[in-house]
Amino acid sequence: MNTFFANGLFANVDWPEIWQASLDTLLMLGGSFVFTVLLGLPLGVLLFLTSKRQLLAQPVVYGVLSFIANIIRSVPFVILLIVLIPVTELIVGTSLGVAGAIPPLVIGATPFFARLVETALREVDQGIVEATQAMGATTTQIVLRALLPEAKPGLIASCTVTAITLISYTAMSGLIGGGGLGDLAIRYGYQRYQSDVMAVTVVLLVIVVQVLQMLGDRLVIHFSRK
């Protein structure tokens, strides 16, 4: 069995390295996901509240936030990675490895997640906001006690989509030395023509994505009351 792996189909695959790369990918995903949600959720709520005919309708604030979000989202992530190298060095002291990958991942994914949050909140029946308002709720109460709980299934779905997007972003960060499965795929699979490494990394990425999607869907069903 060992000889088969050493000389046969997976001759070039260094399993400990694959294991380390998988861990790096999961670390990058976990770290960037937490910060993306922490920043993106309030931003999404703010986008929603300041938009037209909403509780804090502020066309100027909405316009500025929306413009910034659109700019970040319109820059391809590969380019964003490179452009952000100085910023990353400033924040975490290095632009390499897992730590160096997290800031660009967060900056790239936050506007994306915020837009999904805004859309999920827009799906909440406006009548529920009106009813809560009629009960004498403050804006904070309306957001925390009515809007977010009512949007929960939509928000979970947004998290799933964002996590999966982050996975594909982590793969790209391999280009600038970010580490992880994408890094392996590029360095061995692409640059050294080791198709077996490429195949293994792709299969692992597919598995991670499938697991995330399944988990997300389960949670959405669990929290849906409609």
């Binding site: 308002q133 009629a134 004498g136 709720a137 709980p149 009512e150 929960k152």
Partner: peptide, 22 residues
């Protein structure tokens, strides 16, 4: 003052507007 006033006025709606998550 408006909030306190609203707490003293009940309202029901055509489409009920109940919270589906509660």
């Amino acid at each position: 003052g408006v909030r306190l006033q609203r707490q003293r006025i009940g309202m029901i709606f055509q489409h009920f507007n109940l919270l589906s998550s509660k």
